[in-house]
Nucleic acid binder design. Structure first.
Lengths: 154, 154
DNA sequence: TACTGAGATAAGAATGATTCTTAACTAGGA
DNA sequence: TCCTAGTTAAGAATCATTCTTATCTCAGTA
């Protein structure tokens, strides 16, 4: 979901049964531009405010909520603080740094397959699984450097 | 961590380098009694209030925080709302119902082994892994019935 | 056992995040 | 173009959490 034109955004809103308002367009635009940083409502608001000085924070909250309900966005479970959103709605997992509160995505097809296989052998009664994700919790070693995940040969 | 006597609680507080105050004892007692329900600070407060009418909500917040720092409790990452705590500090995973906001624990040694093996072949750079957990998200089918996970034979 | 100081607590104010309310506005179909 | 259901702006209200400060208590020591 990268660099959609406004018309494409307009279209995907309509497909979800939502009126394509100016506000929704710019909110969705801002969230996708902030892709990877798991922004809060406030973050999104700050991002789009300069170009849209009349939009209200309440609208941003409501719009993000609406998008989450229709599945256009995903709410990231995080350790307290404020709600954070993710424009990546594919199955993927997160690394949390409890020091910097950073959330880093990682996507790993092998891991995904491993889990799909695992859960096909388990049955969760009275529960319809919509998705799963793994979180690694811990601390960054050097707060200024990036976190990355790599495969090592044994 | 079930049904500890007050003296045992007192002792484990001291072991963690904390003064064994009346308030800490009853907070820890309440959290362990609420084991499995992943209570919020408010839940804990309500639980212990009748027997301890003078304790303040602020104390409960601070105490839960202190316990989390010493590792006596774990904070459960959850989808927004309020912070929730878990007296089970072993590696385990969670099932979230987005309808009822329920969080159900599940522990699965096989899954744990699977993941340990997986992550031993991956390297997360600049990050010290403290723990991991899996979450299944979805919806309860019948809101009044329980959720349980079972192994099925293929 | 009484004394003492470091650390803990109660109470409530302050802050931060989110939701609610309501009147005005607008997208999009007739 | 007109109409209306749905959307928005603005700010009040609510909820969760943290902060502040004066008071109190645990636990070690005389």
């Amino acid at each position: 979901m990268q660099h959609l034109t406004r018309d494409e955004i307009r279209q995907s809103l309509t497909e979800c049964g939502l009126k394509a308002t100016q506000q929704r367009i710019v909110v969705l635009e801002a969230v996708t531009e902030l892709h990877g940083s798991h922004p809060t409502a406030e973050d999104v608001f700050q991002r789009l405010r300069p170009a849209n000085p009349t939009i209200s924070l309440g609208t941003v909250y409501k719009t993000l909520d609406t998008f989450t309900e229709t599945g256009m966005l995903r709410r990231v479970v995080s350790e307290g603080g404020s709600k954070r959103y993710d424009s990546n709605t594919m199955t993927h997992s997160h690394i949390y740094c409890s020091k910097t509160k950073e959330i880093v995505d990682f996507e790993d097809k092998e891991l995904e397959q491993l889990l799909i296989r695992f859960f096909s052998e388990r049955q969760v009664e009275n529960f319809e699984i919509k998705g799963f994700s793994i979180q690694l919790t811990g601390c960054k070693v050097e707060p200024d450097k990036k976190i990355s995940i790599t495969k090592v040969s044994k």
